[in-house]
């Protein structure tokens, strides 16, 4: 068993807290997430790393309300996500790894729908939507039905829809997959911007370079357990000769 690396971050009140979270599939035979605890503070970009099937998506789904934990608690601003889902959900937005959206709606209709649900008044929704439509170069397509969009365009639409209500917690599952380099550059900027405003960005990824450059802190999950947690520097200090995140990752997630 590898030692966990705990860090101390002194940046104000706690925002997202996972407490002893567990989830099993298939009548308890497969432990997808095994007693995971995390605390993520305002202004942090938090990277969630792990090999395929490690439990990243399962953890994320439990935070956003798509998968009920078998045990454990999730708090956002001291709100229990599963006890008070309405309050929690109005603070969260989620971008899944595959952008499944209503094919028969026009892009703009979908954005208006999401804005209605979050109760965003007309002038604010217009300002925000137009801003992100320009950033992601979707302005000319948003009047078409979503069924005509490419994979990347759908993903951009979901990103925009997730930013309309200016969420406190922005959760993304493999956000860079399928985005062109320019869009993924802009997305990284948006993530950084949000953290500067004291909000949380939580994302999972396979792409180690992204995590390395972008994240304030990183957790590596393997077989449902957090095997490492800390800033890039702390992770490096833990294994000095390993230098790159890739080496650390490979060592930590190697099969015992």
């Amino acid at each position: 068993m590898l030692p966990l690396i705990y860090i101390n971050n002194e940046r104000g009140g706690m925002m997202l807290k996972l407490q002893n979270l567990s989830k099993t599939y298939g009548k308890g035979s497969v432990k997808a997430v095994d007693n995971v605890s995390l605390e993520i503070r305002p202004g942090e970009i938090f990277g969630f790393l792990g090999p395929n099937g490690a439990g990243k998506t399962t953890t994320i789904k439990m935070i956003v309300g798509l998968l009920k934990p078998d045990s454990g608690k999730i708090y956002l601003d001291n709100i229990d996500v599963w006890e008070n889902p309405m309050e929690a959900k109005s603070r969260i937005s989620f971008v899944p790894d595959t952008p499944e959206v209503y094919d028969k709606l026009k892009g703009i209709e979908y954005l208006n729908f999401i804005a209605d649900i979050y109760g965003i008044p007309k002038d604010i929704r217009q300002e925000r939507i137009e801003k992100y439509l320009d950033i992601f170069e979707l302005r000319n397509a948003v009047g078409d039905i979503i069924g005509s969009y490419s994979h990347g365009m759908k993903q951009k639409l979901v990103l925009i829809s997730a930013l309309i209500h200016d969420p406190k917690l922005f959760i993304l599952d493999e956000p860079m997959v399928g985005l062109d380099p320019k869009s993924s550059f802009h997305l990284k900027e948006i993530m950084r911007e949000r953290c500067n405003e004291g909000k949380i960005v939580f994302f999972s990824t396979h792409v180690l370079e992204v995590a390395e450059k972008l994240c304030d802190r990183i957790a590596i999950i393997n077989k449902g357990k957090i095997v490492a947690l800390g800033t890039m520097d702390e992770l490096r200090r833990y294994s000095e000769e390993k230098e790159s995140l890739e080496n650390i990752f490979l060592e930590l997630t190697a099969n015992e």
Partner: peptide
């Protein structure tokens, strides 16, 4: 398909 101001609905 370009977005127009009228595309943004009232809440």
């Amino acid at each position: 398909a370009r977005v127009k101001s009228s595309d943004f609905q009232r809440q």
